[in-house]
Design a protein around this nucleic acid. Structure first.
Lengths: 332, 332
DNA sequence: GTGAAAGCGCTAACAG
DNA sequence: CTGTTAGCGCTTTCAC
């Protein structure tokens, strides 16, 4: 590969000037810029990121910490992030948040300019990592609830509002008994959704004694099992699952046992996952803008890296009620 | 951050010796190793990857080029890759293959030690990229069919065999007319699956005139539309879709129009995507080991990077027929 | 506007 | 076994 020095030699200028053309073009005489650019073109010159990073401290890379790349939610997030990072020639290093020591290495070894962190529930040692990052004054953005004790900005989704809308939709039906299937016990999203759901139900005078909670874990398998335990007796006439995966498990049980949806039991989820519309019956759910979240997060770290002042401390992205056929039509 | 030099000073040895402890411990006297490690521990020393990369040429990073992180197939692949790369302290840089110039930058700017490339259909300029990579003698592994004109190793899935098994399963039913829904026209996987399917059908004496092909694009939406065009008239008694997404679209149309599956029409897919079992009815399909593919790919680049000789030129991972309820029971 | 020179933190011969 | 000495390719004062 052609090096900066080769370009300097070819163009007849010094390495410093070539470097300026790359980084601060305005400090160089236009004619010089032209000549140097010609040389770069001719030699097919590309700056060596490692050398640049070592010398300047800027890596043009950000780390993304995710619970699981495989989950739909996260892969869409990731696409949002990579789509914008590619536009600005940033590299995206993806790490599983469960291997937190590896993430710590990333900060120690100085591989990245910033972090985007999605922590869905409290993970051991994550606070140590965050404190460590913040000590280096590297920018961090949280997706989901801001981390307690940290004042780094966060991008969150209006879980409470979305679940509340669903509750209002449910309320029109005079359901007698409703089952709410949660996510993991301490999952922040799940808790917010439960909170919003209860709030919305209460606002319509629903007696919360008739809302039963079952602890799920966001998987279809667990929800399927829960459905088996609760829904066999036709006691419940509605189920709200904390995510679409869980709703999928419920639907599966109901179909299998020939319990009519929505005539006998209404089912709703949360996410608007790509399969939601194609479940049977098509799932009523709350859409959250996962891809957008990724984009916003990446744009904001970028602003922080470039020390632009106006990064909002918290941005809340709206959710939307998506009405399909798995619920009896409510009053909106 | 503590630097190597700080460790050297603290321990009373030279930088070279400290470096050896990091990279070639066996060349150093045990007692010295111990002392130096104590210093490293005490100072919280972590090697700076950038400096190491610049000096040694090793980046401890590989690039993964994927058509789309969002698709289930690819996100599982990615998890396989990141799971092993994390174990060996490698970084994974993910790029969309559609932005091929950015991938080219990765090789020019010397950010990575190797590439894992998944090209699902021929993409403009991809051959240029591959030639460029191979010119640097950086290791490349292909996932899916090897790239023509390249002799880098590849990991492929037995698409032909899987589809053939499905054909055999179909054949027991004496279906009169079968619809095959393809992927994108030039998609390699889709073509292999068609080939295997036809082969298997022919082996059982099925008249291939009664196999009709419709050009899909691997999406549920397109398959749904195709189902509308072909399956309204009850002419077909079976559908094989080139992937589970497409099968999902078909199922959706059938459910919506109250056409009984599998009594009136049998439906099968390919992938065994996570939702396949939870569709209604549960989808008969061919399972491919996506996660495994990722692991194998990563392990093999690693071997190549370390110049271990025995990297297989081609590894074919098996597929498995998964029988559920969306097909009339065939004879196996 | 441009150049000279000093590093960034580490590895890799080469000596000893 | 350990130390000395050059760099890796770039950025960044500080001069001119």
């Amino acid at each position: 590969m052609a090096r900066l020095e080769d370009v300097a030699e070819d163009s007849g200028f010094s390495r410093a000037t070539v470097s300026r053309v790359i980084n601060e073009e305005h400090l160089v005489k236009p004619d010089t810029v032209r000549k140097i650019k010609e040389s770069m073109e001719k030699l097919g010159y590309r700056p060596n990121m490692m050398a640049r990073a070592l010398s300047s401290g800027r890596k043009n890379a950000i780390a993304v910490l995710l619970p699981d790349v495989t989950a739909l939610y996260y892969s869409n997030l990731l696409r949002g992030i990579t789509d914008v990072s590619q536009d600005v020639y940033y590299h995206t290093i993806v790490k599983s948040i469960s291997k937190i020591d590896l993430a710590a290495d990333l900060v120690d070894s100085g591989m990245v300019d910033g972090f985007i962190i999605r922590h869905s529930s409290s993970i051991e040692k994550i606070d140590l990592l965050i404190r460590k990052i913040e000590k280096t004054s590297m920018p961090v953005i949280f997706i989901g609830r801001p981390f307690s004790g940290s004042k780094s900005p966060s991008i969150i989704v209006d879980n409470v509002g979305g679940a509340r809308k669903m509750a209002h939709y449910f309320a029109g039906n005079n359901f007698k008994k409703i089952l709410f299937i949660t996510g993991h016990r301490d999952n922040i999203d799940s808790n917010d959704r439960r909170y919003g759901f209860k709030m919305g139900l209460a606002e319509h005078g629903f007696n919360l004694k008739n809302l039963v909670e079952a602890e799920g874990d966001f998987t279809k398998e667990k929800a399927y099992q829960i459905a088996g335990e609760y829904l066999g007796g036709k006691e419940y006439d509605a189920v709200f699952a904390a995510n679409d995966n869980s709703a999928m498990g419920v639907l599966h049980f109901l179909n299998e046992n020939n319990i009519k949806v929505p005539d006998e039991v209404s089912v709703a989820g949360f996410d608007d996952a790509f399969f939601a519309e194609y479940l049977w019956p098509p799932l009523t759910t709350v859409r959250q803008p996962m891809y957008e979240i990724g984009r916003v997060a990446m744009n904001n770290v970028l602003m922080m890296i470039n020390r632009e002042p106006s990064v909002p401390g918290e941005v809340i992205l709206p959710t939307e009620l998506i009405i399909r056929k798995s619920c009896r039509a409510g009053v909106i």
